[in-house]
Design a protein around this nucleic acid. Structure first.
Lengths: 135, 135
DNA sequence: TATCTTATTGCAACAGGATGCAATTGCAAT
DNA sequence: ATTGCAATTGCATCCTGTTGCAATAAGATA
């Protein structure tokens, strides 16, 4: 089921702006800032306002179609189906490392069993010190 | 060792603004927004600029004296010695729950052993669905 | 106490993000 | 095709947080 169909089925309108934002996000293989999305949008149709971009991204995130995360002091977005991956961010050198989902699974189960809390650890960010910076 | 002494020992100047910000944070038993800190600061000395507040908070956070976290779309600060506690935030109803440090310990060890990454899970925020909202 | 160095501040401007309102428009019904 | 409803947008403004620069001041030294 495409994202456009999801929007329609949930009663939202499929405006040209929303279609294009979805296209831009689908085509991207990197995380995009709102600004980048706005830039690409302006290349395709003129007169789009940034508030529309922010609103659309908020809507898409709320519907689970887009994932928003804060990395390196900036906010980025990517498609929700891109797969689950997590970032370990070193507070000292700023580098990012990939972290397998399997590592977070025990925590997820623990929270579920002990507290009845269904954690959403999709695209979770964990800060700390990388091996190189610990010395 | 007091926070003021820490600042001095690390070569930073103890300006009146910094002293007062430290006082305000020490006196507070709740998380404070930058705006709240600025407001209380203005009650004590006049003419303080918000950029000073933000800069001081950044400095204190960098020195580990203050903890900054993002809760409910806003950024709050509290004293670093307040103790380790973690927030489970429900994405549906917005409520927050306390989570024991022991729950995060296995993850911390896992990251250390498998990836050599020393995770800083102090005041970590985990989003998901609480028991009530899962039905 | 006076002087000096330079860290720190206030200020203005800026950037990213959010909001209220009137105009516009998507889309269902006819 | 036309109409009507209300969702959505553009616009202006606001809010939170950041940055560069000149003025100010903390604190060390004599």
């Amino acid at each position: 089921m495409s994202c456009s169909t999801t929007l329609k089925n949930k009663g939202y309108r499929l405006t040209p702006q929303r279609r294009l934002i979805l296209d831009i996000i689908h085509e991207a293989d990197v995380h995009l800032t709102a600004e980048a999305i706005l830039g690409q949008l302006e290349d395709r149709i003129s007169g789009v306002n940034k508030s529309t971009v922010y609103r659309t991204l908020e809507l898409l995130e709320g519907l689970g179609l887009v994932v928003k995360s804060d990395i390196c002091g900036g906010r980025v977005y990517h498609h929700a189906e891109e797969g689950h991956h997590h970032h370990l961010v070193c507070k000292s050198c700023g580098r990012q490392f990939h972290c397998d989902e399997a590592v977070l699974e025990p925590l997820k189960e623990s929270l579920r069993e002990k507290l009845g809390f269904e954690a959403d650890l999709n695209h979770h960010i964990i800060r700390g010190l990388c091996a190189a910076c610990q010395s």
